[in-house]
């Protein structure tokens, strides 16, 4: 084959130089989003990274040491702040007006396209390494050995409020009627121990924003939700190293087609 007509000097090489900076940046962004580095390492985008959140080896039993291992998946985008969960929680667990076991926080993103508000339900994370149980002087709060729920033994509570400070999720308050600290226990005494499968809040949630389940069972819906390669899963305040059992993920309601329509409307 004759190549005399081709000036090799003038050919543009197909290497990094010929890719524009914008293209490279876009490519890197995709990669970073997939690996979760983009969000400061907080987003655990693939299943293997869930185990990193636990930092306890890859062993399944280490990750979810309880049987059943109760957990909740919050699908953040789906919460509409109807507060039915708060009401159900108050009624089921006789929570007084001055306190709450779960709460919905509002996030307003002013420069977002379309919807500007997002609601973030919070509750006790029933951490595997719960700082509150270490802080309690009398073991009034403890991890249940079977199901990993962080529970209260009210009669032992001296009311020093150390656990309120130790908790990085503000999940605890002093209940004057019980003369003890009160907190979410996944409705253990009011529902789960009586054979119900769901907590009051996840039972009443109309949009499926709160998925309650058992992480020790790979067939359980909560397990399946968290262990999808294509979904981003994160936990709140991972820097505290508490290995929380409430997982957050986005359930996107705006597909690319919706966004394109919005563009057209403008």
């Amino acid at each position: 084959m004759k190549l005399t007509n081709i000036d090799l000097e003038k050919l543009i090489p197909e290497n990094l130089i010929s890719v524009t900076k914008m293209e490279r940046r876009a490519f890197l962004k995709i990669g970073l989003v997939i690996t979760g580095v983009f969000a400061g390492g907080r987003i655990l985008s693939v299943t293997s990274n869930v185990s990193e959140a636990f930092a306890s080896g890859k062993d399944f039993v280490d990750q979810y040491p309880y049987k059943p291992h109760y957990s909740m998946v919050i699908r953040q985008g789906l919460c509409i702040d109807c507060e039915r969960c708060l009401k159900a929680c108050k009624e089921t667990n006789s929570v007084p007006d001055y306190g709450y076991r779960t709460r919905i926080l509002t996030k307003i993103v002013t420069d977002a396209v379309g919807r500007k508000r997002e609601f973030i339900p919070i509750l006790c994370n029933h951490c595997n390494d719960a700082p509150c149980t270490r802080a309690c002087p009398t073991r009034a709060t403890y991890k249940n050995k079977e199901n990993g729920i962080v529970m209260m033994e009210s009669k032992k509570c001296i009311g020093c409020k150390m656990c309120i400070l130790a908790c990085p999720y503000e999940a605890r308050y002093f209940n004057a009627e019980r003369h003890a600290i009160d907190k979410c226990n996944f409705c253990w005494d009011t529902r789960l121990s009586k054979g119900e499968k769901l907590t009051a809040c996840s039972y009443v949630c109309p949009t499926g924003a709160r998925i309650f389940g058992d992480m020790s069972d790979p067939d359980n819906v909560a397990y399946k939700m968290v262990h999808q390669v294509e979904k981003q899963v994160w936990v709140l305040r991972p820097e505290s190293g508490t290995k929380p059992n409430v997982f957050y993920m986005k359930a996107t309601r705006s597909s690319p087609w919706d966004l394109r329509k919005q563009d057209g409307a403008r």
Binding site: R134, A135, C136, P137, T138, R139, A140, K155, K156, C157, I158, G159, C160, K161, M162, F174, H179, A180
Partner: peptide
């Protein structure tokens, strides 16, 4: 006057101690 149930502290500091708790060691 800060601790809500000081009487329980007298009982359960002895009966149910948590040796990992700084609060227990403090008392």
């Amino acid at each position: 006057f800060d601790i809500e149930n000081p009487h329980r502290m007298a009982i359960y500091n002895l009966l149910s101690p948590n040796f990992t708790s700084n609060m227990w060691w403090m008392g």
